Computed example of a mutant assay.
Amino acid sequence: MSYEPQQPRPDYRSEGGRGIGGPDPHVSQYQGAPRTGSSGPQDDEKTVAVLTHLAGPVAALVSAGWLGFVGPLVVWFIYKDKSPFLRGAAAGAFNFNVTLWLVNVAGWICIFTVILLPLGVALIIAYWVMLLVCHIMAAVKAGRGEVYRYPMQLPILH
């Protein structure tokens, strides 16, 4: 018996789809890159999903809460036909951001009516808390390759 580490045997089945074994089952039909596992998103898909979930709060901070839905919408347009994982992540983030955007608008309308000022302040505080907490939780799950279901969303994109 030898205690030397064994070298992996080469796989002769993956010869560009023309070999004995046919097409390589580990090659993605979307990007031509080898898959790391039999199912689940690749590392680059996880990274884009994390950035998609974090684009909402970043854009909302930059635009004072008005443009949080733009980043997920751009990702959805780019990846809607390429990756089901990214399509679902971007659609969920967009739908959630549009819903929160409506809550933010309602809060500002209540603030300007003066009578409903306490309700408006409560809505805007709820907007920022939900925006930060839910998007951070979604980014963590996306980093693990899991799909995050936002708590409330209008079903606009699928």
Rank of each mutant, 00 (worst) to 15 (best):
M1R: 14
P5W: 00
Q7I: 05
P8T: 11
P8Q: 03
R9C: 01
D11V: 06
D11R: 13
R13C: 12
S14W: 09
R18N: 09
G19S: 14
G21E: 15
G21D: 15
P23N: 10
P23V: 08
D24S: 10
P25D: 13
H26G: 12
Q29E: 14
G32Y: 02
A33R: 09
A33V: 11
A33S: 07
T36W: 06
S39N: 10
P41V: 02
E45H: 07
T47R: 12
T47W: 02
T47I: 11
T47L: 14
A49I: 08
A49V: 04
A49E: 04
A49L: 01
A49C: 04
V50W: 00
V50F: 00
G56F: 01
A60N: 11
L61D: 04
L61W: 10
V62C: 13
A64D: 12
G68R: 04
G68N: 08
P72F: 02
V74W: 01
I78A: 06
Y79W: 15
K80W: 07
D81H: 09
S83C: 12
L86F: 10
L86Q: 09
G92V: 06
F94E: 06
N95T: 06
N95Q: 13
F96W: 06
N97A: 13
L102D: 07
N104W: 15
N104D: 13
V105C: 11
W108G: 11
C110H: 10
I111K: 12
F112D: 13
T113N: 15
T113K: 07
I115C: 10
L116D: 07
G120Y: 11
I124S: 04
A126S: 07
Y127W: 10
W128N: 05
L131S: 08
L131T: 12
L131V: 05
L132Y: 03
V133T: 06
H135Y: 01
I136P: 00
I136N: 00
I136K: 01
V140E: 02
K141V: 05
G143V: 05
R144D: 12
V147W: 01
Y148L: 02
Y150K: 05
Q153V: 01
P155A: 06
P155Q: 09
I156V: 13
H158W: 06
